[in-house]
Simulated scan of single mutants.
Amino acid sequence: MWGGPDDQAGTTETTGEPTETEEPAETEEPTETEEDGDAEERPEGVSEEEFENGPVPEVYLSATSLGNEQRDPDNLNAKADVGFAEYEEARENDAHQPGTCCANCGDFIPDKNGDAFGACAEVDGYIDGADWCTIYESLPEPEVPEGMSESDLPTAEVPEEYRTADSQTGETRDPENLQTQADVRLMESVDAIADGLAQPGQSCGNCAEYIPDKNGDGWGACAKVEGYVATEDWCVVWEHVTAEL
């Protein structure tokens, strides 16, 4: 039976559907533009135009390259004209040889101001050791000094001017505290990079421990390793010059 009016007293009837609470609109995180990403790879305060086309800092304007070529700021190629590319992209170029990069090119000028970039005696703009271009020029291989054989070089006593010399970042060589070339796997950087032992952009020429040629015979030395060392060599104790500048 239906109840009477008293039974239905106090009951209420709701009208309309309940409303849903609106969620606040999601805000999108700002995305990094391609230009911002490129800026992170450039030295602070250097525009994309300067990075690609120069001018480079004054310390590089007429500096001497690893192959002893002096840079002429009025006679340089544009990057676009020489197939300039980063190493991975360069590998797709038929002209590229495995292991070759700016760090073992005779025209490269390593970092001199601590910004991690160098310059080139033939190409304008900022240059990274891991870059490459079609006018790549191998460093000349030094001749074996008179009275020595090639097998003597790894363990030979270096000339007097190197024995306690400072490396290119100021570390003094201690002839009583050196590692052997065999222990540090010293080899030509082109081979080391091609075989995956070294990263593109690594060579003795841009290593903090390297002591460049002091007597004109084309050889250098190392603050950490015994024997004769060439600019185009590499070993496992490689340390970028930038780390000590």
Rank of each mutant, 00 (worst) to 15 (best):
E146L: 03
Q168V: 09
D128Q: 10
I127W: 01
T14H: 14
T11S: 08
P43Y: 10
A230Q: 08
A223G: 13
E188Y: 13
A221I: 09
V225M: 00
D6N: 13
V56R: 01
E88C: 08
D74W: 03
A192S: 11
E32W: 14
D115V: 04
V144T: 12
Y126V: 04
P24T: 02
C235S: 08
D217H: 00
G227S: 07
T27I: 03
G10K: 04
T12C: 12
P142Q: 06
P142D: 02
E22L: 10
G4F: 06
E40W: 09
P57H: 07
A243K: 12
P24Y: 00
A223L: 04
T64L: 07
I193C: 09
A95T: 11
N75S: 10
N215K: 02
A243I: 08
L186V: 15
S151A: 15
Y162R: 02
C207T: 03
A223R: 08
N93K: 14
V190P: 00
A198R: 08
Q168D: 13
P57R: 05
A116N: 11
A121N: 06
K112D: 15
S203E: 13
D233F: 04
Q181A: 01
G201S: 07
C105T: 12
F117N: 13
R173L: 04
T242F: 06
E122R: 15
D72G: 01
P5V: 14
K214H: 00
A95L: 10
P175D: 05
Y136Q: 06
A182G: 05
Q70A: 11
G125I: 01
K79I: 10
T31I: 14
P200W: 07
V190D: 12
M148A: 05
A194K: 09
Q8R: 13
P110C: 01
Q70H: 00
T180D: 06
Y162E: 03
D213T: 11
T31A: 15
A85L: 11
S203R: 10
F84P: 04
E20V: 14
D81L: 05
I127T: 12
S189L: 01
A182H: 07
R71V: 09
A208W: 02
N206P: 05
G54L: 14
W238Q: 09
T11D: 06
E32R: 15
T172N: 02
A90E: 06
D183H: 01
G147W: 01
M1W: 09
G201W: 03
G83T: 03
E29C: 01
A80M: 04
D166M: 11
D115E: 12
E239S: 06
G106K: 13
Y228R: 07
E50F: 03
V229M: 01
V59H: 05
D94T: 12
G218E: 11
E88K: 13
V59L: 07
I135E: 09
V237M: 05
F51V: 02
D233K: 00
N215P: 03
Q8W: 15
E41W: 12
A192E: 07
N75P: 06
E239R: 07
E141A: 15
Q70D: 03
Y136G: 09
E22R: 10
P24D: 02
G201K: 05
T15V: 15
E239G: 03
T11A: 04
E232T: 13
G205F: 05
D213P: 05
G216W: 02
D111A: 13
D128L: 10
S149R: 15
E160R: 03
V241A: 04
D191T: 14
D7Y: 14
K79P: 08
V123T: 13
A192R: 03
